[in-house]
Simulated scan of single mutants.
Amino acid sequence: MKLLDEAREAVQPLLKSRLDTLPTTLRQRAAHHFAGGGKAVRPAFVLATARALDADHDTALTVATAVELVHNFTLIHDDVHDQDTTRHGRAALWTVYGTSEALLVGNAVCALGLETLDGLKGVGRLARCVTDLCEGQSLDIAFEQRAEVSLDECLRMSAGKTGVLLGCACALTALNAGADDEVVRAFDRFGVELGIAFQFANDLLGIWGDEQATGKPTGSDLARLKKTLPIIRALQSGTEAGAQLVELYAQGVELDEDQTRRAQALVARTGAREWAEAEIHRRVDLALSFVEKTGSPELTALAKLAFVYYSSLSSADS
Score class of each variant (00 low, 15 high):
Leu19Arg: 04
Glu279Cys: 12
Ala50Glu: 01
Asp58His: 14
Gly167Gln: 09
Leu15Asn: 09
Ala265Pro: 01
Ala223Arg: 12
Cys168Asn: 12
Leu225Ile: 11
Arg273Phe: 08
Cys154Glu: 07
Thr24Leu: 06
Leu117Lys: 11
Met1Asp: 06
Glu148Thr: 14
Arg90His: 13
Tyr310Asn: 05
Ala234Met: 04
Pro13Trp: 03
Val67Trp: 10
Thr85Glu: 12
Lys216Thr: 10
Ala31Phe: 02
Gly238Ile: 11
Ser100Val: 10
Ala171Arg: 10
His88Ile: 04
Cys110Gly: 00
Ala223Glu: 05
Gly195Lys: 13
Gly89Cys: 08
Ala223Ile: 00
Phe187Asn: 13
Asn72Gly: 03
Glu153Arg: 00
Glu193Asp: 15
Ala278Leu: 02
Val96Ile: 11
Glu274Cys: 03
Glu115Lys: 15
Gln199Ser: 12
Asp84Trp: 03
Ser220Met: 12
Trp94Pro: 03
Leu175Met: 14
Leu172Thr: 15
Arg283Gly: 02
Arg128Met: 04
Leu93Asp: 02
Ser314Trp: 00
Ala30Cys: 01
Thr300Met: 05
Ser312His: 07
Leu225His: 13
Val80Ser: 06
Arg42Thr: 04
Ile231Cys: 08
Thr59Asp: 01
Leu248His: 12
Gly37Tyr: 04
Gln145Phe: 08
Glu135Phe: 08
Arg27Phe: 03
Glu193Thr: 13
Arg224Phe: 04
Pro230Thr: 11
Gln236Ser: 15
Thr173Met: 05
Leu47Asn: 00
Glu257Tyr: 03
Leu288Pro: 01
Ala278Arg: 08
Gly163Glu: 02
Val46Asn: 01
Asp285Lys: 14
Thr49Ile: 01
Leu151Lys: 08
Ala35Ser: 11
Ser311Val: 09
Tyr249Phe: 09
Glu254Ser: 14
Val80Cys: 08
Glu193Asn: 15
Arg42Met: 02
Glu182Gln: 15
Glu148Gln: 13
Tyr97Lys: 10
Glu101Cys: 12
His57Lys: 07
Ala241Val: 11
Ser220Tyr: 13
Arg224Pro: 03
Leu19Pro: 04
Ala268Thr: 14
Pro13Gly: 06
Leu114Gln: 14
Ala174His: 04
